[in-house]
């Protein structure tokens, strides 16, 4: 078992429903500190719901979620967890710099942090532009930059690389690993399987359940497959969807 203090996130028997639809039914998972953990699975499998729960903005039916040793959503965590939602959650009618200055003030981070995250996300030359006039990829980088303010201990990123050009994607993954090397824990969701190999650890998710929790190499070995896509298919064949799976938890 993973030592409590060694894990960034500890989820035990989590039940969440959104509307009338149960999304997570008895999910348990542990996310280690200081590494990049990929949360992969098809659209609608509950990735966003799990991330929202970790950040503490999701109403939960039952189960415990511990983040950095504290209950998810507790006030002391609001300085320490950075969150990037799927759609860029920034103000279109402010410039890039004004957006970051506001979020910096809310976090109480040092003033110099704005320039730091601008250069980390390669947005310095766009800093004076209105966010509404930027491309989709640039907007999502502004959203990421806002989450980097105050150097949080845990970064929760919901599909941060969607719609980015390949070069930029590589740059972002390099950034994620730099942050992890400096001690930040990262959870990065994606529905693109080819991003799996870039993660230190993988969580494969399907229909509200974790199918696999392994390193990319370990996953390929255990399933005897060549790539993550194949591993995912092999796991699905091993765990066919079955209603009895769900009711026993």
């Amino acid at each position: 078992m993973v030592n409590e203090s060694a894990s960034a996130v500890e989820v035990t028997d989590l039940h969440v429903r959104r509307g009338k639809h149960p999304v997570l039914h008895g999910l348990s998972v542990s996310v280690p500190r200081g590494v990049v953990v990929g949360l992969l699975g098809p659209s609608g499998c509950g990735k966003t719901t799990l991330l929202r729960t970790i950040v503490g903005v999701q109403v939960v039916q039952s189960g415990t979620v511990t983040v950095l040793g504290r209950e998810a959503g507790s006030a002391s965590l609001r300085h320490r967890v950075g969150y990037v939602t799927q759609d860029a959650s920034v103000y279109d009618d402010l410039t890039v710099r004004q957006n970051l200055q506001y979020f910096r003030a809310v976090l109480g981070a040092p003033r110099s942090d704005v320039e730091r995250v601008l250069s980390l996300t390669d947005l310095t030359s766009q800093a004076g532009q209105l966010v509404g006039s930027l491309s989709g990829g640039q907007r999502s980088r502004v959203s990421l930059a806002a989450a980097l303010l105050g150097s949080p201990d845990l970064l929760v990123l919901d599909e941060p690389t969607v719609g980015l050009d390949p070069l930029l994607r590589v740059e972002l993954w390099t950034l994620f690993h730099q942050l992890a090397a400096a001690g930040t824990s990262l959870i990065v969701s994606s529905h693109v399987m080819d991003e799996a190999s870039r993660c230190d650890r993988l969580l494969l998710m399907r229909d509200g359940e974790i199918l696999a929790d392994d390193t990319p190499a370990g996953l390929l070995t255990s399933t005897g497959t060549e790539d993550t896509e194949g591993a995912f298919l092999a796991l699905i064949r091993k765990h066919p969807l079955d209603s009895s799976d769900r009711s026993d938890s």
């Binding site: 950040v55 503490g56 903005v57 006030a75 609001r78 300085h79 967890v81 969150y83 939602t85 759609d87 860029a88 959650s89 920034v90 103000y91 279109d92 979020f103 809310v106 976090l107 109480g108 806002a146």
Partner: peptide, 13 residues
Amino acid sequence: RTGTLERLLSMPL
């Protein structure tokens, strides 16, 4: 609607 409220409420505001 744009998600900025969710971001703000996950911050110490």
